[in-house]
Lab assay of single mutants.
Amino acid sequence: TEDARKEAKKIIDNGGSPDEAAKFIKKYGLSEDQARELVKRAL
């Protein structure tokens, strides 16, 4: 979702790792793979 993508970008912009961002956005109901893909797109 757009919200999850924004959250991921915010985490990374604040110095978080892509892994942290992926873990965080899994709470939106995404699978591990979906979360990682979304983080990649957010970069």
Rank of each mutant, 00 (worst) to 15 (best):
D3G: 08
A35D: 00
K27A: 07
L30W: 03
L43P: 00
V39K: 00
K23F: 07
R36M: 12
D3K: 14
Y28E: 08
K6S: 08
Y28I: 04
L38F: 03
E37C: 13
D13V: 07
N14E: 10
K23S: 13
K26Q: 15
Y28T: 05
G15R: 02
R36V: 10
L38T: 04
A8D: 02
F24V: 15
Q34M: 08
I12Y: 04
I12D: 01
S17H: 07
L43A: 06
E32Q: 03
K10L: 10
D19F: 07
N14V: 04
Q34V: 09
A22W: 10
V39Q: 01
L43N: 03
L38K: 00
E7M: 14
A21R: 04
R5L: 15
S31E: 02
E20I: 04
V39L: 10
E32P: 06
K27N: 08
A8I: 15
A22Y: 14
R5M: 15
A35R: 00
E37H: 04
E20D: 13
T1D: 10
A21S: 04
S31W: 00
R5T: 09
E7S: 08
L43S: 04
E7P: 02
R5W: 15
S17G: 05
R36Q: 10
Y28K: 00
S31Y: 00
V39A: 02
K27T: 04
E37L: 05
A22R: 06
K6F: 09
K10F: 10
K23C: 14
A21T: 05
Q34W: 03
G29P: 02
G29A: 01
K9V: 08
R5I: 15
G16N: 04
K23T: 07
G16Y: 08
R5E: 12
E32I: 10
I11M: 05
A4H: 04
P18T: 07
D19H: 07
D33L: 08
G16W: 10
G29W: 01
N14G: 12
R41K: 12
Y28Q: 04
G29R: 00
E7L: 11
D3Q: 14
I11T: 02
A4L: 14
A22D: 06
G29H: 02
Q34Y: 06
G15M: 05
Y28L: 10
K23I: 12
Y28N: 00
D33A: 12
P18I: 14
I25N: 02
G15P: 02
K10V: 07
K23R: 12
D13S: 10
S17Q: 02
L43F: 05
Q34H: 03
I11H: 02
K10A: 11
T1I: 15
A4V: 08
E32L: 11
A21C: 15
A4S: 03
K40A: 13
K23H: 12
A8C: 09
A8V: 13
K23V: 07
Y28R: 00
R36N: 10
R41F: 07
K27D: 11
A21N: 07
F24Q: 14
K6C: 13
S17F: 02
G15A: 03
F24N: 11
G15F: 06
E37Q: 07
A35G: 01
A35Q: 01
F24L: 14
A42I: 15
G29L: 02
E2D: 10
A8N: 01
I25M: 08
S17M: 04
D19P: 00
R41Q: 14
N14P: 01
I25W: 05
E2F: 06
A35P: 00
L38A: 05
D19N: 05
L43D: 02
E32C: 11
I11D: 01
D33C: 11
K40E: 14
D19R: 08
